[in-house]
């Protein structure tokens, strides 16, 4: 079964699920509404044998990174503090890559969230691989994964201020600066 056929079958139950206009290169890419993320993955896992969650990450589309997000001047290149680009939008985009080990088929699913109080259902339980990866996305972006039993910071220290990979993140000086 090709990715398009799977998409057509899923679209009957999830009308918000559409093909992305700007796909991840070489990957069938779909855009999924935040509300049906868990249900879509559940279906992919149980009916279409997508059993391996490769990657969960996110992109902040609000423009170039604030130079104050770095403890020292980051301007090692002329483009480091660039002007807001045409692609800037006030959204986070959660990116999933999932594959079926039996057929070798790979899919990219994306989900746009408003930057204010961003939240998306967790995949914990369907794919255990989502456990730490969702915690990492929460740590870096502050996106809440609803239903995750242990959603706390993972890479940064537990009293860290702000979420470092947000484009508007500003570094708070500490004793090491």
């Amino acid at each position: 079964m090709t990715a398009d056929e799977i998409l057509a079958k899923l679209q009957a139950s999830f009308p918000g699920l559409v093909k992305s206009e700007a796909p991840l290169k070489d990957y069938p890419t779909w855009t999924v509404p935040a509300g049906s993320v868990r249900a879509v993955f559940e279906r992919l896992h149980s009916k279409f044998s997508f059993n391996y969650l490769d990657m969960v990450t996110a992109t902040d589309w609000s423009g170039p990174a604030n130079p104050k997000g770095y403890p020292q001047s980051p301007a090692v290149t002329p483009a480091a503090a660039g002007a807001p680009s045409a692609t800037a939008k006030d959204v986070f985009e959660v990116v999933y890559i999932v594959s079926a080990l039996s057929t070798g088929m790979r899919l990219c699913l994306r989900c746009e969230l408003p930057r204010k109080e961003a939240a998306v259902p967790s995949l914990y339980g369907i794919f255990m691989a989502s456990d730490w990866q969702e915690r990492e996305v929460y740590d870096m972006y502050g996106i809440k994964f609803e239903g995750h039993p242990n959603l706390k910071r993972i890479l940064t220290q537990d009293d860290q201020q702000g979420h470092p990979l947000r484009k508007d993140y500003e570094h708070v000086a500490d004793k090491f600066d």
């Binding site: 991840l24 490769d54 990657m55 992109t59 170039p64 692609t87 990116v95 890559i97």
Partner: peptide, 29 residues
């Protein structure tokens, strides 16, 4: 501008890089 994902079989497993460009000199993500 675009997004790409490439992965290799590193010594410890499936090592992937997810790159996003907004058309500039630096990776956007």
């Amino acid at each position: 501008a675009g997004q790409a994902y490439a992965h290799v079989e590193a010594s410890r497993g499936d090592l992937g890089f997810f790159a996003v460009s907004d058309g500039g000199f630096n990776p956007y993500r």
